[in-house]
Design a protein around this nucleic acid. Structure first.
Lengths: 340, 340
DNA sequence: CTGAAAGCGCTAACAT
DNA sequence: ATGTTAGCGCTTTCAG
């Protein structure tokens, strides 16, 4: 059946398909992209040839010719914790809807993060940058190239679109709730200088009550370690910058023979799946929506740019997505009708 | 200072840099890639010009010329649950170490998954495919292209490299443990026909004990729904295909006023963070390592291919990564010294 | 409807 | 050490 495959080591090109189908590469291109300028018969022949050769167009060639990557990127500090994963998933799903592939880059706090992000910038039509992955200088430099950009969970930079989640106000609500429980002494676990999100949460708390500030990274182990110290003379309540830290505190409390919330109240932020099972009072964020919105905004910018390359870009957009206090048991005892 | 930026809407090209630096594009290319064939002085001038123009090389041009994407892809069903996120993170970290960007594709069970994967195949130097995202036909077609491929958590396909995690044997250990608790009636929640992983787990369980098979998707809600039915006349123990299902059973049991493990024992698989706080007996998998191994193998294949394009490829590799039973409280009561 | 040919931005011989 | 030039694989005028 002449199904003889090529040398296994080299993908077929449009030229081979053209030759096999007995047409020009232009016709192959047209036929494969369902242009209307090809006979049904020709199209069939081309498709057959392509199938026989197992041909998939090389995106590099296509993109270079089209002048677009058909790909977007997203940069985040790490993928640990469901938090970033959810954002990325929302982003990917939305981008896929626009026909864009997505490139991910986890900086892991690497020193060469800036270079990696710049390099990524050269591969995409638009880029979402989360948190403190790179400095403002890098953001500005990339923005200056005209590449559509959107910042996530990060302080705005000049003319760049930014999407955040509500921190301060919900933190105030959390503080009020804790005060309502009768708690009077507090500690805040987290580093307000590290992430804007954390800064906002601390600001909201500090606006309502006096809390001892205990610097702490955002992972479970850091929370655990910080708590070990703190729990020797525990405050009434420990407000944690995120759920992972709070879960670490939980473990430390358990290890120290302390009960939550009787001996010490604990709260987190993010509403991870684990928070539900640790009965952790926390704050839920629309993470999926955060990512999806980013992808949508980028798509708009990209379209706007290709539609009217000359026109002045519309003003930078800002959005703060709502967050919600999720009351469970870790903040203190509630009447029985309160939700899980 | 002549720092006049270009029209904001168009990234600079190597030609503009060349002109500005008063050299040829070849020299720019050399200078920027730190070739040794440029004077220190020229290099400086080029770098200055590039900086002024805020130039970042377009990867399309570069890749097309170099004949490689410097990017790898990974395909998974979804990113929900820390499971896939961890695998992806391990993959990304390792790939970054090899200088490759990574493209992600979540199929979400979409009908056009095959087309999306094929398209992705045209963008990368190597591709990792997880689980039942696409059929064997697609895998074979892509493999026939010569594109390095590695299958994760999926049954092997002809000459394609495959990495899995140990399911059957550890499931047998789990079964033995449950029998040791004195449990005598069992249910298995999951669909062995859906994922090879689940099939392996079920096979291991079924090898040791008789369990009622209750088909169930792999998410929390499905587990919850399936359990609601099942818990009307609960078996001694419910073995779940993964942690999310088990957590769903937990919630259903709680809602039904049943205690775990006293009224019904429950086990999961994956050892999610939440499992720890739900005191769930489960099985831990080296997910990060799964992803990292995939990236390493791909890098080898890619190197092998470019080093010796003619040579016959080495035989397909197979690897099964070890998994570990994690005993907590949900499977039954243990003497106090048993770990959390 | 189809083909020839000019790029897209960059690298890598090959000259000089 | 630097410049010229030919592609890389594809899309897209521009001519038939």
């Amino acid at each position: 059946m002449a199904m003889k495959a090529l040398s296994k080591t080299k993908a077929a090109t449009i030229y081979q398909v053209a030759q096999r189908a007995g047409v020009s590469i232009a016709t192959v291109s047209r036929a494969l992209r369902d242009s209307e300028l090809v006979t049904e018969e020709t199209r069939a022949r081309v498709h057959a040839a392509a199938a026989e050769l197992n041909f998939t167009p090389n995106r590099l060639g296509r993109s270079l010719a089209e002048g677009r990557h058909a790909a977007n990127g997203i940069v985040f500090p790490d993928l640990v914790g469901p938090y970033y994963a959810e954002v990325v998933l929302g982003y990917e799903a939305a981008a896929a809807g626009f026909g864009s592939s997505v490139l991910i880059l986890a900086t892991h706090g690497r020193a060469d993060a800036a270079a990696a992000v710049q390099e990524l910038a050269g591969r995409v039509d638009g880029l979402a940058i989360m948190g403190q992955t790179v400095g403002d200088d890098v953001v500005e430099r990339i923005a200056a190239t005209g590449l559509p950009l959107v910042l996530l969970a990060r302080d705005p930079v000049k003319d760049v679109d930014t999407i955040r989640t509500r921190n301060e106000r919900t933190a105030q609500a959390l503080a009020a709730h804790l005060l309502g429980h009768g708690h009077r002494t507090f500690a805040f676990l987290g580093d307000p200088g590290g992430a804007p999100d954390v800064a906002g949460r601390y600001a909201g708390i500090a606006a309502r009550l006096r809390a001892q500030l205990v610097p702490c990274d955002l992972d479970l182990e850091s929370g655990q370690a910080a708590a070990r110290e703190l729990l020797r003379d525990p405050p009434d309540a420990i407000v944690c910058a995120n759920d992972e830290v709070a879960l670490g505190v939980h473990l430390a409390a358990e290890a120290a023979g302390l009960r939550v919330p009787d001996d010490v109240a604990v709260t987190g932020w993010d509403d991870l799946l684990a928070a539900r099972f640790a009965h952790l009072t926390t704050v839920s964020q629309p993470m999926r929506e955060l990512g999806a919105t980013a992808a949508r905004w980028l798509d708009h910018r990209i379209t706007e740019r290709t539609t009217d390359p000359a026109g002045r870009a519309t003003a930078a957009r800002r959005r703060v997505l709502p967050t919600e206090l999720v009351v469970r048991r870790s903040c203190g005892h509630h009447p029985p009708e309160v939700r899980t």
